[in-house]
Structures are given as structure tokens and as C-alpha cells.
Design a protein around this nucleic acid. Structure first.
Length: 766
DNA sequence: GGCGAACGGGG
DNA sequence: GTGTACGTTCGCC
């Protein structure tokens, strides 16, 4: 299979590249067969794309300008990529190079200062007229390399380490334990029971890293906690922090615009599982929660509250040792899951692995591939589109029905936007090489092949994982393509007109799908961009549902398919993108902010789940029974304080609150204040509304002295309102309005769940 | 109460 | 719908 958009990739096994401003380049490789490590040292000239040469006139005859690439002994060189062509003057016509990246940049900056009359030296990133990439990116593009060719995820040596400290701040606390493991069998603990041993422990850790010589160092929040903490302690103790493989080996931070700086280490890739986890839609990004979510937490997992760890270590060091080892074990397992897409992505785009967990898929992954293609073709990089288009229209979203509907099916257009881009051969108009469309097309084809391979049961698990990661990586790029087109001036090859073409075609397709479904007698519930929920009214069985969808799919244009995407016995349609599905296996799937209330009182969420289950089983009496039951449990105080309470975080010290308390009381801090607690920032605090006392610190979680009226009202206001659309308004009032039984009440047995169609004009989102 | 800033995460 | 995201809580008036 051809792979035109990729680099020519001659070197297998690249695991890390360190490229200095002085032109030195070190490339570390892990042999895919023998697992042996080797390093190659070489030099590179720095290069940038430039619109014109006006900042370089001061170089006079030091600068050579030809239509050829820089000769071997050139100093400063400009390759004219369009020697005879007429060209938009905003296109990047020249490839400038110099003896080293820094020398080239310095000359451009110097020239720009005098040519543009600037008083301060501008950074190249801020200077218009240039495309300047990182040094490693320059190396990968100019040599056609990418990381990880021929390597599977576990072939590089991957080391995990985790610190246990007496505080969150290296100014206030110290490290007393370091857990270390790697994927070659190491698992060990370094400890410093006394403060005086901390320095020796850090040195032992550095020695261990040099001995194990990992290619990759991993932990959860390593950029925000472990590396800043341990480097700060090493600095205080006067220990040179030689973690890396080249130069002085000391890691440094790279400002990449995010709040947590990125740590880089010469010769070793620093990977933070938190960065990868943060892009997933998980309720908490914490290690423990994520490990449980993926089912990788061991059965005997030790859980310790952060603030308790030091004390536990004093009284029961074994527990802390086990805890720390389980942390690094979980990071290893988690990394295999969440870092695999970035690992695979590094084979496709000319960027270092460690930057890819944070790279945006469009600007950070796709655009370097576009730049590489123009570099390799020796063509000027096109000018970005000028002028502002009207803000362009997105997908079509419509609510067709609200309430409870039965026998629900979801269908969606497979990879809609990429399919449209392919089927209609859409791409940015300035892309003379047509590389954008080729990337989408080739990656889509290759992705299907990897998907197929990933499903072959006869293949070894590790190999199937690699195929799966590869198809995931390709999907990421392909899905970014549409967004990139519409991304405005930050996308160097964006084209709003092309993006409009994609969404207009998408809206048209969705309308065709919904019309075709309606014509076949189903009730539409909600349609959104590329998918639709509908109800068949009666049970027709999954094969018939699939057949119906296939029938509609056959009416769509070549290259566009409608797919079955799940079914449910019932659905509560509440608002656009807010619904609850009752699956045929009895599980509830809840979507949308309406149902994920910020309040997290145990009694309320239990109520909502049970009530929704009854509601979707069309059992209104059951809903009432659950409601009555919870109301009764509240009034008889059958719940404990812990059942009704919430946990909050303290954001101020006691001293800071003392300053502002007179002026402005803050409910939860006031509760802590009144309780006389020694509160610290980051402390968790359990609060509840106590009878006659308002919001109070929970001292007795097993107690029962909560404010019954408050929690009864909260049950209606925060939870029962979510059931409104499913019931007649009078019925809802009767069930939850708190009027008690009345003369004109309707027997609950007569009440039924309901749904109603929603007219188009009241449902279409702007 | 309204609104912009800051947070998450880590011990 | 780009650039790390993006919904929730905090902190100030």
C-alpha cells in the first residue's frame, strides 16, 4: 500500500531525538529485533520557510540564492522554490537554511529588527512571514524520519516512578519514598526514613535510571508534580539532576501555552498519562478513578488519602510501600491503554512522541504532515486564505419528540465528514499538491485495513493491539481534517469555503436519512449532525432494525453508509442531547448535563436512577413508590448524614479566610470555621445541612440530624424535575408537588408515561 | 447575584 | 470549530 503523505522513514526504531540549537542531533534507536539500544550523533542545518528575503539583505554575499537545495558547505542559503512560477506573494516561496538553527534564527531576528524597525528582538514565532518548527521537527522532516518505525509499544524500555512526599510543595515538604518499575522486570522502592537521607535517595534514583537506561519515563501528572518536585528538592540539596542521556542530562521545561509546562529530557521521552486521560470524557482524571474505570485496579488495592500518607508511613510503612508500588503498576497498565494512540501517531506525523499527548490533532498532528509534504515536494508552502468568511454553519440538530418512547434505535452515517471529504474530493483550494485530500483518503483506506487486522482473532494479542492503536491514530487525524478546514487563520491551510461545503453536504445527507426513515413509518426522536434516534413503536427485533437501516443506506450516495449504532427498549428524551436510554439488558445510559447534576448527594442520585428505571419501564406507580420511599426515609431519618451530605474542597487557608470573613461569608468555609477545624488548601470537607443549623461540617457521618425539609425540597427541585417531560403536567404536580392526596386526584395506576412530537420551529438549534 | 478567573491533578 | 478542553467552582464586586 502506498503511503505518499509519510516521510520516507529509513531508520527503524527511533525512540528519542535530541536536537540542539547548535545543530547537534542525537538519535536514540531501539533495534526492533534485538532490543539493543544505539545512539547516532549527527548535525543538521536549521531551516525555515520564508515568504521573502527582505529580512536577510544584511547578509549580502553570505547568502546564496539558487533554485537548488543548499550545497554541502553553504553558510546561509535560500532555495527559491518557485523560480519561474507566478505566485501569491504571501506564499512561502523560500526555504532558508543556515549553519545551525540558532544561527539562522539569530540572523533573521537581527535582520527583521533593522528592516522592520523593531526595538526588541522578536521571537521567530511572532514574526510574520515564516514557518518555523521545533528542532526535532526540523530534523524529522528534512530527513524523512518518524519515531517508532517497526516498534511495538513495549519494545522501548518504559520506566515508571512515583514519589511519596510529606507535602504537595517542595518548599514545605520532602520526598520520603520513590517507587520505581520498568517493563524489563524492575520493581523496587527507595526510601528515606530520615530527612537527612533524602539526598542519597535521590542520587540512588538517578543511578538507577542511568543503569536501566529507559527510553520513556512515565507517571500520572509527572509534568505537574513528580518532576517539578524532585528537581526542586535536588536543587535545594545541591544534587545535579542527571536524568537524561546527553549533555548534562538535566530536564528542562518547555512552555507550550498550557498551564502545566512540558518537561523534556535529552534522550528520554517524558510521558504523562494524565495528559492522555484528560482528553477522554471521564468524570475524574485521577489515577485511582481512571484505573478503576478501566478495570486495572488490583483487588487488594490500598487506598490512602493524600494528607494521611505521611502519618500512615510512620505507623504502617508496609501499607504505604504497597500503595506506592500499586501506583506505578497502575500507571504502567494505564499507559498501555491511553498512550498507545500517541505512540502510534508518532509513526505518522513528524513530531516527537512526548509532544503528541498534548498536540491538538489538527494544528499539532495534521498540519506538520502537510508541511512535510510540501517540503519533500520542494514546493512553496501555500498562502493561507485571506479575508473573513461569515461564520460557517455546522451540523443540523433537531429534537423531534420528547418524553418516553419505546423500542428505540440509533443509526449514524459512518465517519460522515471524512466520507464526504473523500466522496466529494474536497480540500483547501490553495493545496496545489492535493495533499490534504490524499491524506484523508489514504489514511481512511489504511485505517480500514488496520481495523480488519485488529479483528483477526488468530493474531497475537500484542499485534492486534498495535493494529487497533494504529487505526485509532488514523481516525484521529482523519476526524481532525474537517475541523482544520474551518479553523480560521491559525490553520495555515484552512479553507472556510471547503468547510462549508462539507457541512452543507452533511445537513443534506441527514435530511435525506430522516426523510427516508420517516417514509418507512418510524417516529424520529432526535437527529444530530450525523446520527438519528428513532422509535419503531413496537418490537421488531434487531435484524429487522438493521435491515431497515441498510435499506435507507442503499439510497445514499456512493461512499456514504448509514450504520446501526445501538438499540434500547426505551428512551426518555428530555432536551436536545439530554436523554436516558434503557438498554435491553436492563442497564441505564444517561447522557447530557441535565442528568449529571452537580449535586452528588447519594440519596438523590439513587432516587434518580431508580425512578428513571421505573419510568422507562412505564411504571408510574413504581416512580411514585420510589419517591415516597425516599421522602419517608428522609422524614423518618432512616438515611445517615453521609447519605445526604456532599464533599467539598477547601480553597483557602484559615488565615486567608480570616481576612475576608467579616466582609463576605462563604458557606462551606464558614462551616469549617465554626467547627474550629485547622483547614488547609486542598483539604476535603464533608458537609451537610443540619437541622436548625444550616450548612455544617459532618462530624458524625452515621448520625441522623440532617434538615429533613431541606433535603425533601432538594429532592423535588434537583431530581424529580428531570422526569417532567415524561408525564402529564397535572400528574407531575400530583406526584411531586407536595400537596398530599386530594379529592380530585387521579389514581396513580391510571397515569401513563407519555411523549409528544416537537414541532420543527421550537426545536432547531441556532 | 452576576461574571470573569481558576481549577482539575499530585502528597 | 484551531490553539490542550471545558464544565464547575471560586472569588470578587
Amino acid at each position: 500500500m502506498s503511503l505518499p503523505p509519510a516521510g520516507h522513514a529509513t531508520l527503524p526504531g527511533i525512540v528519542s531525538v535530541h536536537a540542539g540549537a547548535d545543530g547537534t542531533v542525537n538519535v536514540w534507536r531501539r533495534d526492533p529485533q534485538t532490543a539493543a539500544s544505539q545512539v547516532q550523533s549527527t548535525r543538521q542545518r536549521g531551516w525555515v520557510y520564508a515568504r521573502n528575503l527582505s529580512d536577510l539583505s544584511h547578509l549580502s554575499d553570505q547568502l546564496t540564492v539558487t533554485a537548488e537545495p543548499a550545497p554541502a558547505h553553504a553558510t546561509y542559503h535560500a532555495q527559491d522554490l518557485a523560480p519561474d512560477g507566478r505566485l501569491d506573494e504571501r506564499a512561502y516561496r523560500y526555504l532558508l537554511s543556515g549553519p545551525s538553527p540558532r544561527q539562522l534564527e539569530t540572523e533573521i531576528q537581527r535582520g527583521a529588527m533593522s528592516a522592520r524597525g523593531l526595538s526588541a528582538r522578536p521571537s521567530l514565532g511572532d514574526l510574520s512571514g515564516y514557518i518555523r518548527l521545533g528542532y526535532v521537527e526540523q530534523y524529522l522532516i528534512s530527513t524523512g524520519q518518524t519515531y517508532h518505525q517497526g516498534l511495538t509499544f513495549d519494545q522501548p524500555v518504559r520506566l515508571q516512578f512515583d514519589l511519596e512526599t510529606t507535602s504537595l510543595s517542595p518548599d514545605e515538604g520532602r520526598i520520603f519514598l520513590i517507587a520505581v518499575r520498568d517493563n524489563r522486570g524492575l520493581e523496587t522502592l527507595l526510601e528515606a526514613r530520615q530527612a537527612a537521607q533524602e539526598g542519597e535517595m535521590i542520587e540512588a534514583f538517578l543511578d538507577l535510571v542511568q543503569e536501566r537506561d529507559p527510553d520513556v519515563i512515565e507517571n500520572h501528572f509527572i509534568h505537574g508534580f513528580d518532576l517539578p518536585f524532585i528537581t526542586a528538592r535536588a536543587r535545594k540539596l545541591g544534587i545535579p539532576f542527571r536524568l537524561g542521556r546527553a549533555g548534562d542530562g538535566v530536564p528542562w521545561t518547555v512552555e507550550d501555552g498550557s498551564r502545566t509546562p512540558l518537561w523534556a529530557c535529552p534522550g528520554r521521552e517524558i510521558l504523562d498519562t494524565l495528559d492522555a486521560v484528560r482528553r477522554l470524557p471521564l468524570p475524574s482524571a485521577g489515577l485511582k478513578a481512571v484505573a478503576r474505570h478501566y478495570g486495572i485496579a488490583p483487588d487488594n488495592r490500598v487506598y490512602l488519602e493524600g494528607a494521611e500518607i505521611v502519618n500512615t508511613y510512620r505507623d504502617n510503612p508496609k501499607a504505604v510501600r504497597k500503595y506506592a508500588l500499586q501506583d506505578v503498576q497502575e500507571v504502567d497498565e494505564l499507559a498501555r491503554i491511553v498512550l498507545a494512540p500517541s505512540f502510534a501517531l508518532a509513526r505518522l506525523t513528524p513530531r516527537p512522541y512526548h509532544k503528541l499527548t498534548r498536540a491538538g490533532p489538527a494544528k499539532g498532528v495534521l498540519e506538520p504532515m502537510l508541511i512535510r509534504a510540501y517540503y519533500e515536494a520542494g514546493r512553496p508552502f501555500p498562502a493561507s486564505e485571506k479575508g473573513q468568511h461569515d461564520p460557517h454553519k455546522g451540523g443540523h440538530v433537531q429534537l423531534h419528540a420528547e418524553g418516553v418512547l419505546s423500542h428505540v434505535v440509533k443509526a449514524d452515517v459512518a465517519s460522515m465528514y471524512p466520507s464526504i471529504i473523500r466522496a466529494e474530493a474536497i480540500g483547501p483550494r490553495q493545496d496545489e499538491l492535493g495533499i490534504f485530500n490524499r491524506i484523508v483518503s489514504d489514511l481512511t483506506t489504511q485505517r480500514l485495513e488496520h481495523k480488519r487486522q485488529a479483528r483477526i482473532a488468530a493474531l497475537p494479542e500484542a499485534e492486534r493491539r498495535e493494529h487497533h492503536a494504529m487505526q485509532d491514530a488514523m481516525k484521529l487525524i482523519v476526524n481532525a481534517a474537517y475541523g482544520y478546514l474551518g479553523a480560521g487563520r491559525l490553520a495555515r491551510m484552512g479553507d472556510r469555503g471547503a468547510a462549508d461545503q462539507v457541512t452543507a453536504r452533511g445537513r443534506e445527507l441527514l435530511q435525506r436519512v430522516t426523510a427516508a426513515l420517516e417514509a418507512r413509518g418510524v417516529q424520529l426522536i432526535e437527529s444530530d449532525t450525523d446520527g438519528v434516534y428513532f422509535s419503531t413503536g413496537t418490537e421488531i427485533g434487531e435484524p429487522a432494525e438493521r435491515a431497515l437501516i441498510a435499506e435507507v443506506s442503499a439510497t445514499l450516495p456512493e461512499g456514504i453508509t448509514l450504520e446501526f449504532d445501538g438499540r434500547a427498549q426505551a428512551m426518555l428524551s428530555h432536551q436536545i442531547k439530554n436523554y436516558v436510554l434503557l438498554r435491553y439488558d436492563g442497564t441505564l445510559d444517561v447522557s447530557g448535563a441535565s442528568f449529571e447534576s452537580s449535586r452528588s448527594e447519594r440519596y438523590g442520585t439513587t432516587f434518580l436512577r431508580t425512578a428513571l428505571l421505573a419510568l422507562l419501564q412505564e411504571d408510574v406507580a413504581g416512580v411514585q413508590a420510589v419517591f415516597q420511599d425516599v421522602m419517608d426515609q428522609l422524614s423518618t431519618r432512616a438515611y445517615t448524614n453521609a447519605d445526604v451530605g456532599t464533599r467539598v474542597r477547601i480553597g483557602k487557608t484559615r488565615e486567608a479566610y480570616a481576612q475576608t470573613r467579616e466582609k463576605r461569608k462563604e458557606a462551606h468555609l464558614e462551616a469549617a470555621w465554626q467547627a474550629g477545624l485547622p483547614f488547609k488548601v486542598g483539604d476535603r470537607l464533608d458537609l451537610y445541612v443540619r437541622e436548625g443549623q444550616g450548612l455544617t461540617v459532618m462530624t458524625d457521618p452515621d448520625g441522623h440530624d440532617y434538615d429533613v425539609k431541606h433535603y425533601q425540597a432538594a429532592l423535588v427541585q434537583s431530581y424529580a424535575t428531570r422526569l417532567r417531560k415524561a408525564l402529564d403536567p397535572a400528574d407531575w404536580d400530583q406526584l411531586f408537588g407536595g400537596r398530599g392526596a386530594g379529592l380530585f386526584d387521579r389514581p396513580v395506576q391510571e397515569m401513563q408515561v407519555r411523549w409528544r412530537p416537537v414541532a420543527e420551529q421550537e426545536s432547531v438549534e441556532a
